[in-house]
């Protein structure tokens, strides 16, 4: 089976006199997989995420998503690929403060040019799935951290992306809300197909993934889950 995501020999160096942040990394992710990547601060997890997302170009190696070599695309094509095929969840939620919950969720669909009726239907369905249908017209300042993160998850999955990237999604949440969000993330990845990568410091969070890895900049070493 062709992997959904494949990194082959990826190198990324920011300063010539210093060691590369990513040093010949190779990695494969199949469709339907939900994996966790752990690592110390500064080891290069964000750089890895940026390279996968096409927001940063490797100095060597290739990144292939669903058979498309991302490293061969220009910025506009990468942007289109990201728009179509990826969804992001951040530690600081990053919902747009001047849009309602519904409009935040529907933002990727607007960018993809979905018709208004289809968009509204999909947004309503996503809000229902994350348990926030009644909060559709509320502004972010009226919502709690957990609710904001659920809005962010709904936004990340509204357009049925092939790949979900979640960067410390529970870093700003209390343990109970964090557990709810992690469960929601896993469920949504599995329901919508595609694959998901969870970046986390927390072993408990990593335990919710199918596989967990320790990243040291050069390679991803498997960790036991559970």
């Amino acid at each position: 089976m062709t992997p959904l995501l494949e990194l082959r020999g990826v190198v990324r160096r920011y300063q010539p006199e210093r060691p590369p942040v990513l040093d010949g990394l190779s990695f494969v992710l199949d469709a339907g997989e939900y994996v966790a990547i752990m690592g110390e601060s500064g080891v290069g997890k964000s750089t890895l995420l940026n390279v996968i997302a096409g927001l940063d170009r490797p100095d060597a190696g290739t990144v292939t998503l669903d058979g498309h070599e991302l490293t061969a695309l220009d910025d506009d094509a990468l942007t289109l690929e990201r728009r179509r095929s990826m969804g992001f969840v951040f530690q600081a939620f990053h919902v747009l403060p001047y849009l309602t919950a519904a409009r935040n969720v529907g933002l990727p669909l607007e960018l993809l040019g979905w018709a208004a009726t289809e968009r509204e239907a999909r947004v309503t369905a996503m809000l229902r799935q994350v348990g926030l249908e009644s909060a559709a017209e509320r502004l972010p300042r009226e919502l709690s951290g957990g609710e904001l993160q659920r809005i962010a998850i709904a936004r990340a999955l509204a357009h049925r992306p092939r790949l979900l990237l979640a960067d410390e999604p529970t870093g700003n949440l209390d343990p109970r809300t964090a557990a709810q969000v992690l469960a929601l993330l896993r469920d949504q990845v599995k329901v919508h197909g595609g694959a998901g990568i969870l970046i986390t410091h927390s072993r408990a969070a990593a335990a919710t993934a199918d596989r967990a890895f320790e990243f040291d900049g050069r390679e991803l070493k498997s960790l036991p889950t559970g």
Partner: peptide, 15 residues
Amino acid sequence: RAEFGVLRHVGCSRR
């Protein structure tokens, strides 16, 4: 900046 970063992540081009 953070808002622009989010927009870049969800697929807005610089243009």
